[in-house]
Design a binder for these strands. Structure first.
Lengths: 195, 195
DNA sequence: CCGTAATTTCAGAATTTTCTGAAAATTACA
DNA sequence: TGTAATTTTCAGAAAATTCTGAAATTACGG
């Protein structure tokens, strides 16, 4: 690998963190490289920059496309494929959130739904099912909210983030407005402890 | 492994998902078992329930304590150690968010800070550093917000979640109130695209 | 369509991670 | 303090993942 030092630091870091983020070292490095690059790169260039095999790049790209974190491009007069990482950093966050939900949360939600349909066969299973229902309801609440927030445009999203702990204050205001206007609830859960 | 079917399904699922969540199969299974259990369990019981070695349980517990997802307990008249998973599901979410930030985000933030101190040695590094600054600022905004929200009590947190996309409406209201009252900003970033 | 450049696939090698059993260390309490 | 129960450690076995090179496939330009 022969890269400018700042870029190399970043790329190596992404390689090491890749594991914790659910991708392998190569995939992390490829994404880092594309993210920093000011132009699309082809597989050969990535191979050279990272010192990995051509086939490894091919598999890594397939994985990154699965994550919707890279796009294919074609440069005129060049029959090779080029890759680039989308620029809008807010969109990247949305994509990551969505893909991680799909991989890390949805399967569990689905399993929980199945298991909650079953009849518990005794007090032990009854208690277990209670806990599973708590988990299920909370996950639904969280993912539903995340889905809603994801749809906000960049400016609104930034507004929300800047607010920070201020949401608390805002919620109090909302409470008062709701009493007057009679706003409707998103679901029927109660307001304390149990959801 | 000899467990009631509902429990077994849940435990096996957590084992399989463990990998994607940043822990190994055993750790996922142990946590699942403790989460569903209506009483603390000792290492021997976990060994039997999951069909894994005693030493593996020991290592798994250490990992789960590192995540702050289990607590040690002592039952009177029994010198063995017992383990239990905290009950408050909201607190579990906070703990998970915190620990994942510590493992998955903080190291990157730290690396970015270091790299942003360096002088870029040419246009390529300058562009790369720009992207890194974008990433750094966005991560700070996100983690700062998450940190604030984490401090909310259960009821407020639930209020926020139920709001869903309604935050958008609420933000508009806030905008108007701010014009009147002159609220202060959390940071100096601009409101569009670039953060 | 032909030839060739480019990409993908995949079997097995290399590496990393997980798990176990045996031994060492720690702990409770008699 | 001695002893037996319990927990932890850790070297290496087992399993899983990642990576490569060679072969197969695809896609382009003539």
């Amino acid at each position: 690998m022969q890269l400018p030092p700042l870029i190399q630091t970043f790329v190596l870091h992404f390689g090491e963190m890749g594991g914790r983020w659910g991708v392998n070292r190569t995939v992390g490095q490829i994404y880092a490289l594309l993210f920093l690059s000011d132009r699309p790169l082809n597989a050969e260039q990535i191979t050279e920059a990272l010192g990995i095999s051509r086939s490894n790049v091919s598999m890594g790209m397939k994985e990154l496309e699965g994550w919707r974190l890279v796009r294919k491009r074609h440069l005129p007069g060049d029959r090779r494929e080029y890759f680039e990482a989308p620029d809008d950093i807010w969109q990247i966050v949305r994509t990551l959130a969505e893909e991680r939900r799909k991989r890390e949360v949805d399967p569990t939600l689905s399993m929980l739904r199945d298991v909650l349909m079953e009849q518990p066969s005794g007090p032990e299973e009854r208690h277990a099912q209670d806990k599973m229902r708590q988990m299920h309801d909370l996950i639904e609440l969280l993912t539903g909210w995340a889905g809603d927030v994801q749809k906000l445009d960049n400016a609104s999203l930034m507004g929300l983030l800047k607010l920070g702990a201020g949401v608390s204050k805002l919620l109090e205001i909302k409470g008062k407005l709701t009493v007057i206007g009679g706003g409707k609830r998103r679901n029927q859960a109660t307001d304390e402890g149990e959801i």
